[in-house]
Computed example of a mutant assay.
Amino acid sequence: MKTTLGWAVILIVSLAAQAVLLPLVFTKGVKPDILLIIIVAAGLLAGRERAIGVAFFAGLMQDFASGNVFGLNTLSKMAVGYAAGLAERKVFKESILLPVLATIIATFFNSAIMQALLFLLGYKIEPGSMMLNQVLPSLGYNILFCIPIHRLIYRMTFGNRSQF
């Protein structure tokens, strides 16, 4: 799964699931950010170059699909991918805590970047309300999905080299 085509398939399927299926399952507009979890896994497992590329296309597709401020998801996801990619050589990739901790940090980091960008663009931001109503519930869902997605990306990147 080291090919660009393989990553494109993962991103397109994930975006379709996130945009079409997840809103049917999760209520009040709060759902896991599958693309963010994939970007974190790509950064931790494949390095920052791969993570930035995956993040660029994931954010771009999410911007096209969402109808929000164009470029907001692309910039925030690229920053998250770069940060996750910096840790690639410094972490034990088979650790079960790695995807959980990285997803927690990435969810808050992504939210902070998006709020800062919206503020700079002149939008009224209420960080406390957004944190309680969107970020924390989304964080819970992200934690539920991060381990299976991390394992999937691990197997696609490295094959079956370990017992992970």
Rank of each mutant, 00 (worst) to 15 (best):
L5Q: 07
W7C: 09
W7S: 15
A8R: 10
A8D: 06
I10M: 07
L11I: 12
L15N: 13
L15H: 08
L15D: 09
L15G: 13
A16D: 09
A17I: 13
A17M: 11
Q18T: 07
Q18D: 02
A19H: 03
L21W: 14
P23L: 09
L24H: 08
L24P: 04
G29M: 02
G29V: 01
V30S: 05
K31S: 12
P32N: 05
I34S: 05
L35Q: 08
I39M: 06
I39G: 00
V40T: 06
G43P: 02
L44K: 01
L44H: 03
A51M: 12
G53T: 13
V54K: 11
A55P: 10
F56R: 01
F57R: 10
D63G: 10
F64W: 10
F64T: 12
A65P: 01
A65N: 04
G67I: 01
N68S: 15
F70S: 15
N73M: 10
T74H: 12
T74L: 15
L75A: 14
S76C: 05
S76W: 05
K77I: 12
K77Y: 14
M78S: 07
M78Q: 08
M78Y: 14
A79N: 11
V80F: 07
G81L: 10
A84F: 05
G85K: 09
L86N: 15
A87F: 15
A87E: 10
E88W: 12
V91A: 01
F92I: 12
S95T: 02
I96T: 04
I96W: 03
I96C: 00
L97E: 05
P99I: 02
V100I: 03
L101M: 08
T103C: 02
T103P: 04
I104R: 01
A106P: 08
A106W: 11
A106G: 14
T107F: 00
T107V: 06
T107K: 01
F108W: 14
F108C: 04
F109Q: 06
S111G: 08
S111F: 12
A112G: 02
A112V: 06
A112W: 04
I113G: 10
A116Y: 13
L118H: 09
L118V: 09
L120D: 08
L120W: 11
L121H: 09
G122D: 10
K124N: 13
I125C: 03
I125Q: 00
G128I: 06
M130Y: 11
M130R: 11
M131L: 14
L132C: 03
N133G: 11
Q134I: 14
Q134D: 02
Q134Y: 14
V135M: 03
L136F: 02
P137D: 03
S138T: 11
G140H: 00
Y141K: 02
I143H: 05
I143W: 03
L144H: 03
L144R: 00
C146Q: 05
C146F: 01
I147Y: 01
I147S: 01
P148G: 03
H150C: 00
R151I: 04
L152M: 06
I153Q: 07
I153R: 11
Y154Q: 04
M156T: 11
M156Q: 09
G159P: 00
R161E: 13
S162G: 02
